[in-house]
Amino acid sequence: MERKRSLKERLRDWDADAFDLTNEIAGPMHPAPAALPERPKDAEPEDALAAEDFRVLRRAYPILAALLGLMTVVFLLVAVFDLPPFGAAGTPTDNEVALRYVRDGMTETGAVNLVAGVILDYRAFDTLGESHVLFTALVAVLILLLKAEDPAIDDEGTLTLRQDRIVTTAASILVPIIVLFGLYVILNGHLGPGGGFSGGAIIGAGLILYAVAFGFSRLETKLNLGSFRIICLAALWFYSLSKCYSFFCGANGLHTVFSPGTPGRILSAGLILPLNAAVGIVVACTMYGLFSLFQRGKI
């Protein structure tokens, strides 16, 4: 039995690449490849010159890299030295753009939280792209990690904690609170700090905690792949279509059916509340989906 190593030793090992956490976590999940395939027969002998180049390059690499890093830092320091002072009023960023967001933001968008007004109304196209970045990442991870449906594969993945009583009890108390808080943050996004992204991340964390404590199969009775997909994709469709409508109306000078309402009310700020909800759904689904994919190769 190996002596337990102190934290300091483990840190030193980690820095020296000797201590490989992935071995402990991912080891059993990925057995070593039996044997790497043989080189193709028609392959020519390795280019000796290229190998020599490579070796020289490898020796010179740390020096070159350090030089490049140093150059970049000096360059950037010179650049930021020229910037306007931090925290002062009247800098270039404190201009007519910020002025209108602050002065007219509440009347124009109906959102008391001006940040929500900026990202979901003034600059909504950015945010539309941003939620699709999440979608893109989810699909990319699906491509990379999705395993074929095979009943032989253990459903519970590898990191299954034994159904520890402390964990399950704590989770059964915490998960409802976490999800409720997430909902509050989403629905309150136009009134105070929060919004779809933060609330969605909180709900996603709640779902992950639930899956860790009770296993995936129990969550799956309520949220299986089919419903997961439909919910997430419906939210994205709603987002794209409603924003397309409002962009179209805006560009052609038409009035939308969404009005800012009375700022401060829960049902106000036009599209911002439903958009926050849609974003929240997308984020929560993505977080849970990513966890589940990394954990066991499927959603």
Binding site: V97, E108, Y122, R123, A124, F125, S246, G250, A251
Partner: peptide, 13 residues
Amino acid sequence: EYPMGHYPHPWGN
């Protein structure tokens, strides 16, 4: 220049 929404530059996309 086609505003994405009701706000022209420099405010909206």
